[in-house]
């Protein structure tokens, strides 16, 4: 059974404040990802890779088609169902770290586990383990990540995304702005996730990374109205 099953998905943006212009950005998108499989999205900038990822996460609405993640049709699910899905099943490592200022890094990373009702000690231990692996110096753990460098913030974001063993993971440029050592750590984390059966959908500009972790590549240009041949 596929963990992600996308069928004939389409998306339009209607810009009400710019004369109501309707922009079709995706049509006829279909894709299946099984447990333990990693699929990389390719296509030139603006072809809709991030749009598709956001639709899978429920962040963007869909115009048509279906989008089933672990048995839940995200295209039709209520906010509650999507929240429950995100809490337990569907993880997302975005390119940007969005957190409440002032909250300690270790708590930022532990939060997905606390949301699941895990004991505080257990959640923090897991957070510390990931922060160590991603080479965030221990003296920074008690500080808010809002003042960290771009690379550090990216690693905190990855630690947060991998804190809970999500059955489905969305990765948006997980190795961008990382040095060789940390890139290696992240790729290992992805391989471990695959090994435990996670279905992964990712955008990797880093070709080496793509070649190493992706089982298949899907060019979204084929789903883009106007760009498709």
């Amino acid at each position: 059974m596929p963990m992600i099953e996308i069928t004939n998905l389409s998306k339009t943006f209607t810009l009400h404040n710019q004369g109501g212009v309707v922009i079709p950005v995706m049509a006829g998108a279909s894709l299946r990802i099984a447990a333990g499989e990693c699929v990389g999205l390719t296509g030139q900038s603006g072809s809709g890779k991030s749009t598709l990822m956001r639709m899978v996460y429920g962040n963007y609405l869909t115009a048509g088609g279906s989008l089933v993640v672990a048995g839940v049709d995200v295209a039709r699910a209520s906010p509650r169902e999507i929240i429950a899905l995100r809490r337990s099943t569907l993880g997302y490592v975005s390119q940007f770290l969005r957190v409440v200022p002032r909250v300690a890094t270790v708590d930022v990373v532990a939060e997905p586990l606390l949301q699941l009702g895990r004991p505080v000690g257990q959640a923090r231990a897991r957070a510390e383990e990931l922060l160590s692996r991603l080479n965030i110096p221990q003296r920074l753990w008690s500080l808010s990540p809002t003042t960290f460098s771009g690379g550090e913030q990216q690693r905190v974001n990855i630690a947060r995304g991998f804190a809970h063993a999500f059955p489905v993971l969305l990765l948006d440029e997980p190795t961008a702005s990382l040095d060789a050592v940390n890139r290696e750590v992240v790729l290992t984390l992805i391989e471990e996730a695959k090994a435990r059966g996670a279905a992964i959908l990712g955008i990797f500009h880093d070709e080496g990374a793509r070649a190493r972790v992706c089982d298949r590549l899907v060019d979204v240009t084929g789903f883009t109205p106007g760009l498709a041949a």
Partner: peptide
């Protein structure tokens, strides 16, 4: 109305689009 991040990142109504932008 909808999921918070969805309404803010992919607003459908003209007023919401104006508000977010």
């Amino acid at each position: 109305q909808g999921l918070t991040d969805q309404v803010l990142d992919d607003p459908q109504d003209a007023y919401t689009q104006l508000l977010v932008s």
